[in-house]
């Protein structure tokens, strides 16, 4: 059996941002959605399951209790088990502490994994770092910027990934961590049976102690970076707005382009 750890994240709706006193993001009580790139990662894992059949997908997420709804939805569309890594002590974790925490949870809960699948980015932080951090802490290879898999079997997987100026086709054995960048598909809808099944599944909850981490290794304390200051992003363009006829608009457009004295215009 191929064992997949699928790592997902709930992200706050980026139009509704609140900050804590420590200048970290207030996550509780904010409307949350599954990170879009993690939807691609889930699809990637579920496609492997469709191809190989004998596959078990365990979803891992780090977050508050409300994240269990997202975990149940993922079970309803075909994932098998779910682990919620949750502890107040995890608050304020940067990518280093997050990578350490998730890797410790995988080590404890799914030590014989073959594949770890993550989204390439999370749209809230957009660091693209957590995946590689997990891989480093588990000392396994990684393939980032993955477009899709071309072949998969019990021993290895062939992938297409996007690198500077081109596309690489690579082959790797297990264990490996894969970060998924793209997904072109219709989102899966859970079946009624899937929802019923998911509602009966127990979601395993792990705190810091359960995964063998000390309080000073996690959250803000375990993070080498910290936010010293946060401020609003201001534009320095002078907004001028024109409501003109089409002809006048075209004329204005042409004038503005010519006035910039761009060589090839």
């Amino acid at each position: 059996m191929l064992k997949i750890a699928l790592c997902v994240k709930q992200v706050p709706d980026t139009t509704d941002i609140r900050w804590t006193e420590n200048n970290t993001i207030q996550r509780e009580g904010v409307e949350s959605v599954i990170n879009p790139y993690d939807v691609y990662a889930a699809e990637f894992a579920l496609k492997i399951k469709e191809d190989l059949k004998d596959v078990e997908i365990t979803v891992f997420t780090m977050g508050p209790n409300q994240a269990s709804d997202m975990l149940r939805k993922l079970i309803a569309i075909g994932c098998d088990k779910a682990v919620l890594i949750s502890d107040r002590k995890f608050a304020g974790a940067d990518t280093y502490a997050t990578g350490k925490t998730i890797s410790a949870a995988i080590k404890t809960e799914l030590p014989d994994f073959d594949l770890i699948v993550c989204g390439q980015f999370a749209v809230d932080g957009d660091t693209a770092q957590t995946g590689p951090c997990i891989a480093e802490f588990l000392n396994i290879p990684q393939v980032t910027y993955t477009q899709k898999f071309e072949k998969v079997d019990e021993k290895s997987i062939e992938l297409k990934r996007i690198m500077e100026n081109g596309i690489e086709r690579v082959k790797t054995s297990y264990p490996v961590l894969i970060c998924v960048l793209e997904g072109k598909f219709e989102p899966r809808r859970p079946t009624i049976n899937g929802v019923k099944y998911a509602s009966k599944q127990e979601i395993r909850i792990c705190d810091a102690q359960a995964i063998g981490l000390e309080p000073e290794q996690v959250g803000l304390k375990g993070s080498p970076t910290y936010v010293s200051k946060a401020f609003r992003n201001m534009s320095n363009h002078n907004a001028q707005k024109f409501e003109l006829s089409t002809d006048e608009s075209v004329k204005l457009l042409n004038e503005r382009i010519k006035s910039m004295e761009v060589e090839n215009a």
Partner: peptide, 23 residues
């Protein structure tokens, strides 16, 4: 922060147990 740089940098920072600020 090219694709290669973003693949490489977090491996190094994690191995060195230091912080990395992206982008």
């Amino acid at each position: 922060a090219t694709n290669q740089g973003r693949d490489l940098a977090p491996r190094i920072s994690s191995a060195l147990h230091t912080g990395l600020t992206a982008d």
